[in-house]
């Protein structure tokens, strides 16, 4: 299990985590730690490359949830209201955290947990970076 990091440049700098292995409680913990470190160091846009992740356990989904919240930061009461309305209407996707190339079983976990409602899913690295 490993997480390799690359830096891409679109309209904004995008940090890409290339995950490899089953995203279980062990890799999930590693992702949370590495994500928190990157956000503390200034990263604002994070793309998770899931092409080599056979499946995502709930611990991995919880790591996504933590990173989503940490990247959203404090947008104030008005910002929160707009986000919650967008979430309710199904029109809000995180502008800070996106996913690249999830495998079929990973996609099934995302969908079962309802995470695909909030996280954009891309199939091409260049398109994904350009979308931030």
């Amino acid at each position: 299990m490993e997480i390799m990091t690359t830096q891409e440049q679109g309209r904004v700098p995008v940090l890409v985590f290339h995950l490899k292995g089953e995203l279980d409680a062990v890799l999930g913990q590693q992702l949370r730690q590495q994500g928190r470190d990157a956000i503390t160091a200034g990263a604002q846009h994070l793309l998770l490359d899931l092409a080599e992740v056979p499946y995502i356990a709930s611990a991995g989904l919880r790591a996504f949830q933590e990173l989503f919240t940490a990247l959203r930061g404090d947008s104030g009461e008005q910002g929160d209201k707009a986000v919650y309305e967008g979430l309710r209407d199904g029109t809000y996707k995180s502008p800070n955290l996106k996913l690249l190339s999830p495998t079929r079983h990973a996609l099934e976990a995302l969908s079962t947990a309802g995470f695909d409602m909030f996280l954009e899913i891309h199939r091409d690295l260049r398109d994904a970076v350009a979308s931030f």
């Binding site: 709930s58 986000v83 919650y84 979430l87 309802g114 909030f118």
Partner: peptide, 20 residues
């Protein structure tokens, strides 16, 4: 699983996935 992501409790997902 339809509530806003950041308002959900961190637990309970594992059993939900297992049932599925």
């Amino acid at each position: 699983v339809t509530s806003p992501l950041e308002q959900r409790p961190l637990g309970g997902l594992g059993i939900h996935l297992t049932r599925h």
